[in-house]
């Protein structure tokens, strides 16, 4: 057994191992009801990571998702009254448009994605501050319940929130593995030059990938906003790190072309278990970020395909 053979299986093995460890240390962790609550808690993070998967899958990255989600929480809160359920469409369109702009700046203007998305993230921050008047906003409770209350109800004992996440996962999986777009994404991530030489419109594929990432970040922001019943230019802070960790730990390397949305589902579950474990092990909340930072470094070091990097800059 060599490392290359084991590598694709590492993420779920890690997940099983972690669950077993935490379960042994604290059997109550394995209580299904508790697990469902834990899982619903990470739904916004998961959806953001789902979007991030597409950006990383093509070999780029999107550092703007957190700010974009912030902006969307504000949009959702401000326009809920006037738009009703249509505010969801507004948010998703805004996110997709924003992502498309990132993609455009990256591909057509030759700005590396980590800079373009970092910069555009700050444009989103300005937007969020402007729209919110730099205050924390609250949704009208009645309106929220009337429009989005169903999100927190249960169908057959499973929170609808989880069902939404599962639906999105299924849709993204279908997109990734059954459509020409998904195949093109893989080609761009695994061998961009060969994709160009095969006549694919690589620029358009990349722009669409970023747009998809933006749309999913917007959905994530929307759900988060509904969950907390408000909007604020800093509401989703802290998501960026965890979203990147979820994607990379799941086994989609920074170099792209391998992995995919199912991996991200596993990655998010790993993040969830680590977080739960820290609570059980009474690790202080203040240490979480440090630990996830270290997990991130380990995950990159293990997954990255160094043969694709001639010079590491």
């Amino acid at each position: 057994m060599n490392m290359e053979r084991i590598k694709p299986h590492l993420p779920w093995l890690t997940l099983v191992l972690l669950v077993a460890l935490v379960g042994i240390a604290n059997p109550t962790f394995l209580n299904p009801a508790g697990l469902i609550v834990l899982a619903s808690d990470v739904v916004p993070l998961f959806i953001m990571a789902l979007g991030m998967t597409f950006a990383i899958y093509i070999g780029g990255i999107d550092l703007s998702v957190q700010q974009l989600a912030n902006l969307v929480t504000v949009i959702a809160t401000v326009f809920l009254m006037s738009f009703g359920i249509w505010v969801a469409v507004l948010c998703i369109l805004a996110g997709a448009l924003f992502g498309a702009v990132s993609g455009f700046v990256t591909t057509r203007l030759y700005v590396p994605s980590f800079v373009s998305t970092l910069a555009l993230g700050f444009v989103a921050l300005s937007g969020a501050k402007w729209l919110s008047g730099q205050r924390a906003l609250h949704m009208d409770a009645e309106q929220r319940d009337a429009t989005f209350g169903w999100v927190f109800e249960r169908t057959l004992g499973i929170p609808n929130e989880l069902l939404i996440a599962a639906g999105l996962l299924a849709a993204c999986w279908f997109l990734q593995s059954r459509t020409t777009f998904g195949r093109s994404l893989k080609a761009v991530g695994a061998g961009e030059l060969a994709a160009v030489a095969s006549g694919l419109n690589v620029d358009r594929i990349k722009i669409l990938a970023f747009a998809l990432c933006g749309a999913l970040a917007a959905i994530s922001g929307l759900i988060f906003s509904v969950k907390l019943s408000g909007g604020d230019a800093n509401l989703a802070n802290g998501f960026l790190l965890l979203a990147i960790v979820a994607v990379l730990v799941g086994g989609t390397p920074l170099t792209g072309g391998v992995g995919g949305v199912l991996n991200t589902a596993i990655g998010t579950l790993i993040v969830m278990v680590i977080r739960a474990a820290m609570v059980y092990l009474e690790v202080d909340a203040t240490q979480q970020q440090m630990i996830f930072g270290i997990v991130l470094i380990i995950a990159i070091a293990l997954t990255i395909d160094r043969s694709k990097l001639k010079i590491v800059k």
Partner: peptide, 24 residues
């Protein structure tokens, strides 16, 4: 290896890469 095939994609994926429209 750089421009001809996409390493990381399998045989049939590589063969239809330039003509996905015909198979979709």
């Amino acid at each position: 290896k750089v421009e001809g095939i996409v390493a990381g994609m399998n045989v049939y994926e590589n063969m239809t890469l330039s003509q996905m429209g015909n198979y979709a």
